[in-house]
Simulated assay, not measured.
Amino acid sequence: MSVRSMFAKATLVVALSAGLTLAPEASAQKHIKQNLAQLVNQAHSIISGEVISVTDGFDERKRPYTEVTIRVGSDAKGKLAEDSLYTFRQFGLLKPRSMGNGKVYLGVSPEGFANWHVGEQVVAFMNPTLGGLTTTVGLEQGKFNLLNGKVSNEVGNYGLFDGIDSTQIGAEDQNLLTTPGAVDAQQFMHLIGKLAQGAAQ
Rank of each mutant, 00 (worst) to 15 (best):
G142Y: 03
G163A: 09
G92H: 08
V151F: 04
I164G: 08
R71M: 12
V108M: 05
G92R: 02
K77Q: 06
L139S: 09
V123C: 04
F91V: 10
N157Y: 10
E111R: 12
M99Q: 00
A171F: 09
Q174K: 15
A114F: 14
D56S: 12
G170P: 03
Q168D: 14
Q174S: 07
R61A: 14
A114L: 04
Q168N: 10
D162C: 13
A114G: 07
N157C: 14
F88E: 01
L139R: 08
M99C: 01
Y86L: 04
G102H: 07
L133N: 00
S98A: 08
L80A: 13
P64D: 04
K62N: 03
D59C: 00
V155E: 13
M99R: 06
V108C: 12
G149E: 06
S109W: 08
K79V: 13
V155S: 00
S84I: 06
V54C: 01
N175I: 13
G159I: 15
I169M: 12
R97D: 02
K79Q: 15
P64V: 04
L139Y: 06
Q141A: 12
S98H: 05
G142C: 03
L147A: 15
T69N: 00
G92N: 08
L94T: 09
E60L: 06
N115L: 07
G163E: 15
D173G: 02
T66E: 06
L94F: 01
V68L: 01
Y86N: 10
M126D: 03
G119Y: 02
G57Q: 10
E172G: 10
E172M: 09
G102V: 04
S84H: 09
F125R: 13
F125T: 03
F91E: 02
T135E: 14
Y105T: 12
N101W: 06
Y86C: 11
D56N: 05
E172L: 12
N101C: 05
S109V: 06
I70G: 00
E172R: 14
S53Y: 03
L94V: 00
Y65S: 10
V122A: 00
L85Y: 02
F58M: 02
G100P: 04
S53C: 01
G170F: 05
N115V: 01
Y86S: 07
T129D: 11
T87R: 11
S98Y: 04
P96L: 08
D56F: 07
P96D: 02
E154M: 14
T66H: 04
F125Q: 13
R71P: 05
F161T: 13
V118L: 01
V51H: 00
L160H: 02
S84A: 08
G149P: 01
D165V: 07
F161I: 04
G112I: 09
L93P: 11
M126H: 09
K103L: 06
P64Q: 01
M126L: 15
E154H: 09
I52P: 09
T136Q: 04
N157I: 14
L106W: 03
E172D: 10
N153I: 07
R61E: 08
D75R: 05
A81D: 15
G112L: 14
Y105W: 10
Y86I: 05
T87H: 08
G78A: 01
L93F: 12
Q141W: 05
N145T: 15
